[in-house]
Design a protein around this nucleic acid. Structure first.
Lengths: 193, 193
DNA sequence: ATAATAACGTACTGTTCGGTACGTTATTTA
DNA sequence: TAAATAACGTACCGAACAGTACGTTATTAT
């Protein structure tokens, strides 16, 4: 009944996500967004709503993709210990790569918006809860296969690992010596035994 | 040789610190600052420089005060295990108190500014390094007193604890169930043995 | 007392902010 | 083919932004 949309909403949303992820909510302007999304300002508003709504859409996109990434990574090793080691070391390696990582978008949002906006408090909490469940399932696989101690408390251990992974993801932003991070990872993952 | 300053620079700086701490750098405007500091805009510029310089001054004030707080807390218990437990549980208790905590200003800055501003990358890194040293000293006291295992690696353990404490400080912003945090703390601090 | 000087309050600068009105263009349905 | 409709680009809105010019007031040193 009318003109068809000329841009791909998914591609545009992805561009917005990368920008918010890199700069945060406040530091990203509508002009930044139009430039990177390749569309005009009214197109953003008609397709995604206002700035906060667009941000929310990008965060939802991120958390879904991030959760399935994490799940896939944990399932890609037969050894649960090695899987967690690869996961933690991957965070470090990414940050120290030629073009540094953006870190974790959800963590950035927990810090910037969750304390002042209940919607993002809930959204970020639910993502962390989901990650904890993914971790727990991996640990339970390790217990069932006999790789991990039968006395392990999978739930509590997964929760501790989520906390440490968050800490690691934040700490790398200040670019400490890699030995600092390697030591910390090594000690933390000694809990997975 | 001239008129004397009518406001107390230290009090004004403290007000600015609390505001930046609560809202972050970008979300805090000069108008917010003049309102809370109780002084006019040109007074800010003459006493502290521009917005970024003022922010830096508040962060330096915070890190110094925070470091000595941490040191004091760790020294206030004869048992090192109890000292760390009180430290970690204190973060949780503060956040779930009637008026929620602002979290850790240094962590907020690591997330918001460190990735895009080398000055803050360095400043925040140095603070975390300093905290790690304080932690290490506490652990060494525990080893020397016989409370902790003689095979403990105080440096590596302290680094792991710094990471977990960062993770905890971020995670509380999304207000998960306390049992989540209690479990995670319990598992993490089982490393201190 | 007076000249020098620095802090003060007011009022302003140009710029950028998020958001939108509106006329134009392209597509679809009838 | 014509009417309807929605996406498009342009150009704008008032508000808020960080930062400053400037005249006034208070304090100091001479």
């Amino acid at each position: 009944m009318a003109r068809t949309r000329e841009f791909d909403e998914n591609i545009a949303l992805d561009a917005a996500m990368k920008l918010f992820w890199e700069k945060g909510y406040e530091a990203t302007s509508l002009s930044d967004l139009t430039a990177r999304m390749g569309i005009q300002r009214p197109s953003i508003y008609s397709a995604f709503g206002d700035k906060k709504e667009l941000f929310e859409a990008t965060l939802r996109k991120y958390t879904m993709s991030h959760a399935s990434d994490m799940r896939a990574q944990l399932q890609s090793h037969s050894s649960v210990k090695k899987a967690f080691l690869a996961l933690f070391e991957g965070v470090v390696a990414e940050e120290y790569a030629v073009d540094r990582s953006r870190g974790c978008f959800c963590i950035n949002t927990m810090v910037e918006l969750a304390p002042h906006d209940e919607k993002f408090e809930i959204l970020t909490r639910e993502h962390q809860m989901y990650l904890a469940v993914i971790f727990q399932e991996a640990i339970e696989r390790g217990v069932n296969s006999g790789e991990l101690d039968a006395h392990t408390d999978p739930k509590a251990l997964s929760q501790a690992l989520v906390l440490s992974l968050i800490g690691l993801s934040v700490m790398v932003k200040s670019r400490p010596q890699r030995s600092f991070l390697d030591n910390a990872i090594s000690v933390t993952l000694s809990l997975v035994k």
